[in-house]
Nucleic acid binder design. Structure first.
Lengths: 263, 263
DNA sequence: TCCCGTTGGTTCATTATTATCACCAGTGGT
DNA sequence: ACCACTGGTGATAATAATGAACCAACGGGA
């Protein structure tokens, strides 16, 4: 963790939809890195287009380089566009917010959101980073990941995002067992108060999890009827998604899916 | 240039549409960096989601993190979507390939392409990096950039992309003077054989250049009639673009635009 | 007006990180 | 069996990163 490139790259994560432009001192304060060091790193990242300085203001923001890199990846492996279609289908059918995320390092990166048009709905920030241990998407991803990844993730301390967040690794492991059996994960306000999430895994052609699609509702609105409806829709769309992306769900997930009966 | 983060970030630029997945040894060979070093850097960049390993194959590719970062930037400052509309307008009207690029470090990053539907047309790779000195877009960007940026760019050796590429800094400076007067730049096979490009600058709210839109045709097809048509269309679309993006063209460009008469 | 707390940015001696080499194990082709 | 690759790993030498102190500039507030 004390690698310099790691420190430099970690600076990128402070830029968000809510705060797309940050100054030098502010960034140094938050990251805990010295101002001079941050300055040098920002300079290099500007040179490579990952960041850029707004002309007059002395603020930094994400640069054109990230747009370019995303284009390169998306052209070679078009996933966001395919995910987006599925999300819009889901949110239209269920009237709730749907979102998709991919494994990115040791967390999840939100790469697509489709909000419902209801007055009361769950909102997500575009490009938000979701923790593995406190979200439905994270649980379902861990449940189908290789044990060594889970070990690494549960080795670090688990932040209590709400009062209901599971922070005990052994309890969490038990949850993962259940999730692996059912094929989907639920989160009742474990990441954010008043948000209930249900997530389904998405796989690549090697049978490895790559991410998840999920539906989030205000917690009070989640009845058992809606739950069943959401789960059925997610199973259906996840299968379509795996087909479109060439994903091969592992046996564990296929049997879970076939075992599923609305109760 | 000998900074480690610079070396690490430079590795990203080896991933392209044409070659989206690269192995460790290959990357070490091209970058000229030691295999062990590359390995450590790739590991860190994987940790931060900029890269990822394809499950079975031991190849690296751009990760979900770049998708996320691009989303964050695009949500905060939606430019690619606006550019894309303009590009489609241009390619439809002119029947030639149109593309847009933004300043990214000391080069240009292609962030949008709209190819014509003709049989013979110019093709660009998505997310391609365009040199400043050999492309019409680069010339027009430099022509309206601050002198210190131009000095930095012309201080480094200029690669001869074709036999017609201008590699002499002083000759190039003279060209930039002309370009600043006319408001647009032309490139007759200076970046790629048989490609003729015409580019127009795009500005931000501070009057600084941020990028360019351009039309590229097969060189033999560029008649004076077509030239005039392209230039007129680019002036028109550039103005619309500056309006949509809140860009304020500097006086130098506005007078150039008003001075323009088809000859 | 002065003062004070900011800001972005720079410098340089110290030190901790990083590069390099050699090595290992696995794989695919001949 | 061999060879030429591949991805990956460790220990030491050398380099590059660090962080405190220091500027200049800006914006209030009194």
């Amino acid at each position: 963790m004390s690698s310099t490139v790691a420190k430099a790259l970690s600076l990128l994560d402070y830029f968000s939809e809510a705060e797309p432009e940050i100054g030098l001192s502010e960034l140094a304060r938050r990251s805990g890195v010295d101002k001079a060091t941050v300055h040098r790193m920002l300079g290099v990242m500007c040179d490579y287009g990952l960041l850029e300085k707004r002309g007059d203001a002395r603020l930094y923001r994400l640069g054109a380089g990230v747009l370019r890199l995303a284009r390169v990846r998306e052209t070679a492996f078009p996933v966001t566009s395919i995910f987006q279609q599925v999300l819009e289908m889901l949110s239209a059918e269920l009237g709730e917010t749907a979102h998709a995320s991919l494994i990115s390092g040791h967390a999840l990166a939100t790469i697509g959101v489709s909000e419902s048009n209801r007055g009361s709905r769950v909102s997500l920030l575009a490009g938000e980073i979701l923790p593995m241990h406190s979200t439905a998407s994270g649980l379902v991803v861990m449940a189908f990941s290789k044990p060594e990844l889970v070990d690494r993730l549960l080795g670090e301390p688990l932040a209590a995002k709400t009062s209901r967040t599971i922070t005990d690794p052994s309890i969490l492991r038990a949850r993962l067992q259940e999730v692996a059996l059912t094929g989907y994960a639920e989160s009742d306000q474990t990441n954010e108060d008043d948000v209930y999430g249900i997530a389904m895994p998405v796989f690549d052609s090697d049978g490895a999890v790559t991410g998840a699609i999920a539906v989030a509702t205000p917690a009070h609105r989640m009845t058992n009827d809606l739950r069943q409806q959401v789960i059925a829709a997610l199973f259906r769309e996840a299968e379509k998604l795996n087909y479109s992306l060439g994903g091969r769900p592992p046996a564990a997930f296929r049997t879970a899916a076939s075992r599923y009966r609305p109760d």
